[in-house]
Design a protein around this nucleic acid. Structure first.
Lengths: 196, 196
DNA sequence: AGTCAAAATGAATAGCAATTCATAATTGAC
DNA sequence: GTCAATTATGAATTGCTATTCATTTTGACT
């Protein structure tokens, strides 16, 4: 078995266990059991329990960024780009429910060290949104008075909160596509009726 | 000293300590010290550590709901109502930074917390938004095709994410009023230019 | 099939912190 | 001023689990 295999096996087990019990209630022995590995083996691949969480975060957000950038590659219309981003973000929940739950949890941990560490990857992910908004403004599609730095947060926050709702309730009230469309729609056109 | 005084003293101390260290890293002895009370005394007012968190959550969200409902009482324009809601939500961070941090953290802390403990208070808080949207639709100001059940989450999520940004960075890039206005503006009018 | 380094094991260690409870202090009714 | 009830104390108990490390297993190479 290659080194990376065991590393990955442990990471995947950790995602499962953290999602089920939360980081602090998860025991190393739970993760070891889930990964079918001895407790001590985990310490050959990670420095400590926090380290599992941190490297998990970095690896997985990294993959998500790569994937969404790939999806956006061949699209130039900023409106469609926002729709693609929204759809992909919500889609994650279907494909990797446990991972999304862990990332959400971790994003709100109070540990200062973790706060600082995870920041660069996370910022890279939401900056995709501000880049799209900026592009839309330059091309004259989007209003000049909105601030990309605020929109990126608002857009991410809206999507993330929808994810949170879904990861909690067994039976979603709305479909994924419906939700992605509504969110994009609101951000693109707002609530109020257009004058005709 | 009246019973309620000590109960409140402990709650306030817990907010401080949870904000500083997070729920799991906070020791009962930390809270006791902060409240200037013996460790054992805490158990005269709360069943266990978890109970401190839950009753804190209920009490404080309750107060927030009362206050925002009061602020909305004399306003009938749904657009202005959303602005008031946004401003009040963000304002909390200035007035009660530690509390906001704790509420944010705990809202995501463990799925167990949310799943097992029916968070009626939280739902009551965000339902204020869907009520406003619904009213706006009935009165013909808002588009019929948006779903209040999605908007309430998106709007709360956007505001909450802005709060999170602020509670992390020492120096905010935008003022509170500016941010509240941008968020309301986006939800009301969207990103794209209006046809004239 | 013997040798060796690397990888893996899991029982033992070590330290922490929630909760308890025997004791003490405080209160207030008479 | 006394006494019982109420409230508070904080050291001791208890249980838990992250991490370590002496030992074993693996597998590559001769």
């Amino acid at each position: 078995m290659r080194v990376s295999d065991k590393h990955q096996k442990i990471t995947q087990a950790a995602v499962k266990v953290f999602a089920r019990k939360g980081f602090f209630n998860a025991r190393i022995s739970d993760i070891a059991k889930e990964a079918k590995v001895a407790d001590g083996t985990i310490y050959l691949y990670f420095n400590n329990k926090y380290d599992i969480l941190i490297s998990l975060f970095e690896d997985e957000i990294g993959k998500i960024i790569v994937k969404v950038k790939l999806l956006l590659e061949n699209e130039t219309d900023p409106q469609k780009m926002l729709q693609i981003y929204a759809l992909h973000h919500l889609n994650l929940l279907q494909e990797q429910k446990e991972l999304v739950e862990v990332l959400q949890m971790e994003l709100r941990q109070s540990n200062k060290f973790i706060k600082e560490y995870r920041n660069t990857k996370f910022i890279e992910y939401i900056d995709i949104v501000s880049d799209i908004v900026h592009k839309g403004q330059q091309e004259g599609h989007f209003r000049q008075e909105v601030k990309p730095g605020i929109i990126k947060r608002a857009f991410f926050g809206a999507l993330d909160e929808m994810s949170r709702l879904w990861s909690l309730s067994a039976k979603p009230h709305y479909t994924l596509e419906e939700t992605a469309e509504q969110i994009s729609d609101i951000f693109l056109y707002g609530l109020t009726k257009r004058d005709n």
